[in-house]
Design a protein around this nucleic acid. Sequence first.
DNA 1: CAGGTC
DNA 2: ACTGG
Length: 285
Amino acid sequence: MNSIKIAARQPIDIEQTLQSGQVFRWNKIGEWYYLVINHNLVSIKQESLEDILVRSETLSGLDLETAVNDYFRLDDDIEYIYKSICTDKHIRSAIQSYRGLRIVRQDPWECLVSFICSANSNIPRISSNMTNLAAAYGNKLHLDEHSNYSFPSPHQIFQAGEQQLRELKLGFRARYVAAAAKFVLYGECDLDSLKKLSYEESKQTLTLISGVGQKVADCVLLFSLEKLQACPVDRWVRRAMEGWYSIEPNLSYEEISSWAINRWGPFTGYAQQYLFQQKRLEVSN
DNA sequence: CAGGTC
DNA sequence: ACTGG
């Protein structure tokens, strides 16, 4: 067992980050969060707002620190980002409530499947879909007495086929997930290589996939392909824009998204994530 | 009714 | 159009 402490020197809130609708396969057991990073089962405990403990069987030392740093984007200068997006009282209030919430850098293939599954669904159901996929076709990983699965490859999901995916309760999304697996598997699109392209070019490539429209593409770009200006506009973000920024209800996705990018600049994705969290959680209070 | 898409 | 939290 390898155990290290990471001093982020800036706010990192593991709970807020994991429950902000970016990541769908993690468990909390006691004070420890278990999640899979690069095919390694890792557990994380929050020590303070800037310090975390990390444990793993398969990664150690610098490899473990690097994996966790990359995943939670701990190299982002979050205080600078806060300053650059803090244009008004609504953002200020959201930052105050959710300080330490990070945009993650997750595996692009798992991220793509997650958000194809997000269509007309909800976070508990997306989690269920992703957990079912991993348990059915992934490889089992162990840490302590706990286990989880690596996310199945495009090949493993393509082999499964649409009918089996339907049996995992994906519904009409099964066809899109199967199509995406085929698209990636046959090399029409190497997802990691999209990091090198511009925001516009990589988005255009992603939307070639059936089941991937502007919203799903923006989520994949923001949460896995390092396009921090991407602004996914879902029901909650649209409500936030209409209620707090007097955006007309009939504006198109494109109009809202570019309005946001024009207002918040290169870190619009962070602004979007804080507004999303604020709007989504204010209703349940 | 749900972090949409065709 | 699927369906389950």
